[in-house]
């Protein structure tokens, strides 16, 4: 065996170990979720669907899962609409005032989440919104807007700024030019922004912790409180479901990428 092959084998081994290290925790969670035991033991003694049945029959899981899906859908729609409007409004203009506005919109990315969470809680508590869907949607939307602004902004930067003026000279009103020209060209950016917003909302814990009540809580908050109570494999079942949702969203994202060509799908930041 020559030195080149030795190095290659070493590289494969290291890569394999890193992959196992990254995937193993998720894999263990998924495996335990099909356990027949009432305890978190690995390897599980047998196979069963009981923890998934448990999720369906336990109102707390069912309701929190529904809350999360509802908040995710509303957040994705709202953040995408607002973020797209902001990105379009900011595009191609280079005044100091607008640069400041852009920085402000991107702030949730750098402000520690716990600080955002405390601030949002104090504000929404004053409005009496804590424990409502609209509080969760409002908060998640604020956190998700920077992702949409980034993906749509990147898509706008790759489109020719001369197209809209050209459409105007051809007889298109500004709104028709936006619908017929700008919108189709930035659609991949809008879709990735939408998916990122959805994933962010569905996975979010810290801000949700502040805004949830025992009656209205997201599935992540329900998991968090479950960890401190009687922990059983039900939590691995819900974790597997969350993983599934995230993977479906990611799969949708890469599908857009394949259809549009690798270059046009935009990662935020």
């Amino acid at each position: 065996m020559n030195a080149g092959r030795l190095w290659r084998w070493l590289a494969y081994t290291v890569c394999g170990l890193v992959a196992i290290y990254l995937i193993a925790p998720m894999l263990i969670v998924v495996i335990i979720s099909f356990s027949s035991s009432a305890l978190l033991t690995f390897p599980p003694p047998g196979f069963s669907w009981r923890w998934y049945q448990n999720l369906v029959t336990t109102p707390a899981w069912r309701e929190s899962f529904t809350v999360s899906l509802e908040v995710m859908t509303l957040t994705a729609l709202l953040a995408t609409t607002l973020g797209t409007m902001a990105a379009v409004g900011l595009a191609g203009r280079r005044t100091r005032w607008l640069a400041g506005l852009r920085t402000l919109l991107m702030a949730p990315l750098v402000v520690p989440q716990i600080v955002s969470a405390a601030g949002i809680f104090l504000l929404l508590d004053a409005c009496g919104w804590v424990g409502t869907i609209r509080a969760l949607v409002t908060a998640h939307t604020v956190l998700a807007i920077p992702y949409v602004v980034a993906t749509v902004g990147a898509a706008l930067e790759t489109t020719d700024p001369g197209l809209v003026p050209a459409a105007l000279t051809l007889g298109a009103t500004p709104s028709v030019a936006f619908r017929r020209i700008t919108l189709p060209l930035i659609r991949p950016g809008i879709l990735s922004g939408l998916l990122f917003a959805a994933v962010l909302s569905f996975d979010e814990l810290i801000v949700s912790l502040f805004l949830s009540t025992p009656r209205t809580r997201t599935v992540t908050v329900q998991m968090w409180s479950n960890v401190f109570g009687d922990i059983d494999p039900a939590i691995t079942a819900i974790a597997s479901l969350i993983l599934l949702v995230s993977m479906l969203l990611l799969g949708a994202y890469s599908l857009i990428g394949r259809r549009r060509g690798a270059g046009s799908v935009v990662m935020p930041l």
Binding site: D160, A167, L168, T169, G171, A172, R180, L185
Partner: peptide, 28 residues
């Protein structure tokens, strides 16, 4: 406004709509 002037404009960088076919560009 520009969209009511009915003046033809040809730009240096063509400004063709990249997502529309040649015929759709001309039909626009």
């Amino acid at each position: 406004p520009p969209y009511r002037r009915n003046i033809g404009v040809v730009f240096q960088n063509y400004a063709l709509f990249p997502h529309l076919s040649v015929a759709a560009n001309v039909a626009f």
